[in-house]
Design a protein around this nucleic acid. Sequence first.
DNA 1: CGTGGCCTTGATAAAGTTCAAGAGCCGTGG
DNA 2: CCACGGCTCTTGAACTTTATCAAGGCCACG
Lengths: 224, 224
Amino acid sequence: MEHFSKIWLFNGLSPEHSARFASIASEETVARGGVIFSEGDDGDGFYAVISGQVRVFKLSVDGKEQTLHVFGPGEIFGEVPVFAGGQFPAHAAALKKSRVFFFPRQAFIDLIQADPSLALNMLAVLSRRLRQFTTLVESLSLKAVPGRLAAYLLYLAEHGEDPENVSLDISKVQLASLLGTIPETLSRVLGKMGREKLIHSTGSRSIKLLDRVGLEELARGERK
Amino acid sequence: MEHFSKIWLFNGLSPEHSARFASIASEETVARGGVIFSEGDDGDGFYAVISGQVRVFKLSVDGKEQTLHVFGPGEIFGEVPVFAGGQFPAHAAALKKSRVFFFPRQAFIDLIQADPSLALNMLAVLSRRLRQFTTLVESLSLKAVPGRLAAYLLYLAEHGEDPENVSLDISKVQLASLLGTIPETLSRVLGKMGREKLIHSTGSRSIKLLDRVGLEELARGERK
DNA sequence: CGTGGCCTTGATAAAGTTCAAGAGCCGTGG
DNA sequence: CCACGGCTCTTGAACTTTATCAAGGCCACG
């Protein structure tokens, strides 16, 4: 129940509704690498991360993956079929051992009709996700890999604790998949950025930003 | 008012609400090429296309464009800031002379609280759009240009009148921008697909699909 | 009848993927 | 406690796809 209050979606929900709703949720534990759902599965509810990390991604025939999102505690995922019907448009799997809530579709829809603030919360969640997608598309289509990486590092700097020292919360393999490239290319780009004194690697998952201006130019494509 | 009923979002809305709402909308006419909003503009409402075509797109510093959507009559756009706050995440401009409705934010939010079915409609719209974005990202990241084009042609065949003979509703320049490439490349790919007897061009904006199986293989990346 | 947008074709160049190989790291089980 | 296997990360070389630059033809519309 204290996990419940950390789910942003339920902010401002009346206590009765909250309680009613918590009783409907079921909890699941997923091992590292475990599949939560696959693209094409029928979706009769959505999920929320309690602990751990969940990755949502697309898969191509020849095995390449494009990560769409990495979700941490308090975030929800898999909600598209709840409102649009049909199947999940992507795969979801745990990056590490995780616990998730599952919320069945119909109960959720009933509750939305009883509590408009929940509807507005959900609309806000979906809208933010649309915004994230526009930046993902922009990255993939309009930026070269160094620019994507620079933009991502600056994003982490904005949203992390220390704006100088960024800590990656995912592996380089996963980061490559999120940036729409492969580990080899990412490794080369990181190497080059180090040589150009834009960043400095301090540990396997932490990077110091040495030249913010240079990174911003890269992210905007004003610099090769 | 008869235009109003063609907006899918308002399906099933009670007549009173419908009337109240129609009175709030303001109408605008936009010339071909006219800008409706730009990325970064404050969004205090959203739009619906009455007639014409509106393109929503991202712009890079060096002038490249990636189209996110092309909207036709009855579709809404620009709704992200209504629920997520902040600014429009992309640009919107008319592809041809168009008329659009503008719906102010606060009035719409009020109405959602009065009529949950409107909330559910909007959630469905946003969810469908998320689904479209996942396929766009998949195309851009996991498919080569021929695969993207094949997938798009098959999509048109599914959703158009004649499954054998698809009609492009946008120019090749626009199609290139939607597929994340440039007109030159698109032209070459179309030429190659014609030579391989996958398609046959019948007029400047209509294409006959000669080999559906081959196209599907291309779209899946099983064929170069 | 001319001008601008649209479409096509060719030659060249750049960016990123693929394939191959090897080094470092960690947890598990012998 | 050490060794093994697996996974992550790095580096090199060849190749492929696509963008860029340049030019010409076509069509529609003023």
